[in-house]
């Protein structure tokens, strides 16, 4: 099967997954407690006003009608109106996407930069203090809850040491790119430093668990590869150890690591909820929580469609890339 056919087939599968997400979210409406009108309005509001608002929001329609109207709008990009702000859901969700992607990518970059060298050191110096140090770091990273780490980093590096801001995202990466394209390099540089200054702590917070995971994966993968016969053969034919480790062993080790990194990126798109809340980072995670608290179902649906689609896309790309990296895997 060619790559294009593979992508087409997987995309069609992905559409079904996203459709499933939409349907499940609609199902949640039925079982989740809390009528949106009761959350939007005070309890003592006049019943007539309540009914009027319910009509205005279209909540009086049967659920299946709301469902089909919603699904019918998706191909045209119409995800309905937010119940709380009455603004188009698609615009609201897309406005949040850059912040979430930035954070997810930054966390991944932080994780990869730290974890792979750490995993390599740990594997090549097995039972050395460096290995123990890396193992302890990994365990701590995997067991530290995000919300605690985030708050601690803020208190230490922002409040006490005044090295970073406590929270917020005053400038987005899209602004930096736009300024650079407009040849305003001075402004772009200022924006870039501001952006880096603000994203460092959230990226470390979000990336720590991930760092620990990749460190463990790199270590065990590398140890596994080092014991294989091709390594012995390479050494026997006189290849320098550096070349053996970094050209052959690390390359093979990275195949499963890349798979995990890709899949994790999909998770991070929807999984940064706590980090976003702690750092007041205006991304999809915050939007999902706020819209659920307000029972703003259209926004919740829109956000989850984006998260679901993100997951599907990263999965497809990872699979495609995996087959490219590992010739033993085909697109069939």
């Amino acid at each position: 099967m060619s790559l294009s056919r593979f992508l087409l087939k997987r995309s069609l599968h992905g559409l079904f997954v996203v459709w499933g997400v939409i349907t499940v979210v609609f199902g949640l409406r039925v079982i989740a407690p809390g009528d949106p009108a009761n959350v939007l309005l005070p309890p003592n509001v006049d019943p007539e006003v309540r009914q009027q608002v319910i009509r205005e929001l279209g909540l009086n329609e049967p659920l299946y009608v709301q469902y089909f109207e919603f699904v019918a709008g998706i191909p045209t990009g119409d995800l309905g109106l937010s119940l709380t702000t009455r603004t188009p859901v698609a615009a609201r969700v897309l406005a949040k996407l850059p912040a979430t992607l930035e954070l997810a990518v930054a966390a991944t970059v932080v994780a990869v930069i730290i974890a792979i060298p750490l995993g390599v050191i740990s594997a090549t110096r097995r039972h050395d203090p460096a290995d123990y140090g890396a193992t302890v770091f990994s365990l701590l990273g995997i067991s530290t809850p995000n919300f605690w780490l985030g708050v601690m980093l803020i208190i230490l590096f922002a409040v006490q040491l005044d090295m970073f801001p406590t929270s917020r995202r005053p400038v987005g990466f899209d602004t930096i790119v736009a300024q650079a394209l407009a040849l305003q390099f001075g402004s772009a540089w200022d924006a870039l430093t501001t952006w880096l200054w603000h994203i460092t702590l959230p990226a470390i917070t979000l990336g720590t668990y991930f760092t620990a995971l990749i460190t463990r994966l790199t270590r065990s993968g590398m140890l596994d590869e080092l014991g294989k016969t091709y390594v012995r053969a390479s050494r026997a034919k006189g290849l320098p150890e550096t070349l053996v480790r970094y050209k052959h062993v690390l390359r093979n080790t990275l195949i499963p690591v890349i798979t995990v990194v890709g899949l994790q990126l999909g998770t991070l798109i929807g999984g940064a909820v706590i980090t976003e809340a702690v750092f007041a980072w205006p991304g999809l995670g915050s939007l999902i929580i706020n819209s659920f608290n307000a029972r703003d179902w259209p926004v919740l649906q829109g956000s989850l469609i984006v998260v679901g689609a993100g997951f599907v896309v990263t999965n497809i790309l990872v699979d495609a890339f995996y087959a490219y990296l590992n010739p033993q895997v085909t697109y069939d």
Partner: peptide
């Protein structure tokens, strides 16, 4: 006007003069 849903985040912003 800005918002931070976490109380600790708001307090940290205040203490930092943000």
């Amino acid at each position: 006007f800005r918002a931070a849903e976490e109380a600790s985040t708001r307090v940290n912003q205040l203490l930092q003069g943000e």
